[in-house]
Design a protein around this nucleic acid. Structure first.
Lengths: 187, 187
DNA sequence: ACCTCAACTCACCGACCAGTTGGTTGGTAA
DNA sequence: TTACCAACCAACTGGTCGGTGAGTTGAGGT
């Protein structure tokens, strides 16, 4: 068996993403993560320090992957919303990890990187508004919150709508794009 | 000490709402619930059967309270969104329980009551559209999902926006009302 | 061939936790 | 007063879980 620390760490990280996305921090089991990664539980503590450290690594990985895969575009907020929807639909664990984070780990402090990303986005929205690319009816922070909520709308709906939900992904996507365009047309 | 089964059950239920809202199902501790309710852990199993039974009771209670406190009005979806926002702002545990439910208990089956409520709402939106009260650009299920997402938008945002969030509740509320009015003005 | 050290495993621990049992208490009705 | 039973509780159980320390293995350098 080839000994490769980096690859082992990667396998643990991927197993952790699945485990935490499914069960959250309190519900996750480090033994399950180790078993899924095909290595010993002690490696988790060697590489990530603690269960929470492992969650943080999993969350950071998914967050960074999302930021890289779905570039922000203040001049095309409707398109960005559609692309974010696509990503969440293809990588459901991303939104689940984000939700677990908000519920179980909102006291953590490793969100400096995310805060910085949001700062940039707010400034870009402001610039696009000053240059007349998009409506100035909503403030940048209002627009960002509305867009974030809408891009996750179909995935954060409780399953009580199950039988009525449109099965076609394209239709759900178009709903969001239309909605954002509607918001930008206000006033 | 007065022995009152109904009151004891109520104290347990309120303690459970706080505990589950804070920690979720996996993170909640039945001993903490019993201690907060000022009675013995065994009462929980006598009255609610299991930890999950206790969560279900807590979730059902908050759901019913929300439905009663915030009546739905298909002819005034913007106003409904504002009132839902107010309720979530005053009772944060309601949205947290709902989110825990979706993450940890979406396989449960006691959502027949909620499905029924949504059926009625979808029919009312359809009727309001046919009678020309509101725009028919979005279908009823699209409108319902958009409105549900928007009413929780400020509360389901991860805390990375902290320093930029408007502190005034009225302003956050108005954002949502404006947004829904904008959606209904599309086309 | 041998040394070295990082990568990895094994077996264990103490704390914790959901759930149960067997018994006690106190209101109430005859 | 007393008998009854619902309401309540202390103490326990069996299993689980995060975390650890001591030992093993294997690849690369000399």
């Amino acid at each position: 068996m080839a000994r490769d620390a980096e690859q082992t760490k990667q396998r643990l990280l991927e197993a952790a993403i699945s485990e935490f996305a499914a069960y959250g921090i309190a519900g996750a089991r480090v033994d399950r993560v180790a078993a899924a990664a095909g290595c010993n539980k002690a490696m988790i503590y060697s590489y990530f320090g603690s269960k929470e450290g492992l969650f943080d690594a999993a969350f950071d990985e998914r967050t960074a992957a999302f930021f890289e895969a779905v570039p922000f575009d203040a001049g095309d907020l409707a398109g960005y919303t559609g692309r974010a929807f696509d990503y969440f639909d293809e990588h459901p664990e991303t939104l689940r990890l984000s939700t677990w984070y908000r519920l179980e780990r909102s006291d953590a402090e490793h969100l400096a990187a995310i805060t910085e990303v949001n700062d940039v986005r707010l400034r870009e929205i402001g610039r696009a508004q000053r240059e007349g690319e998009i409506s100035g009816h909503f403030s940048p922070v209002q627009l960002l919150v509305l867009i974030q909520a809408l891009s996750a709308a179909w995935h954060s709906t409780n399953p009580e709508l199950g039988p009525h939900l449109p099965s076609a992904r394209a239709g759900r996507r178009q709903t969001l794009v239309d909605a954002v365009q509607g918001l930008l047309a206000v006033k």
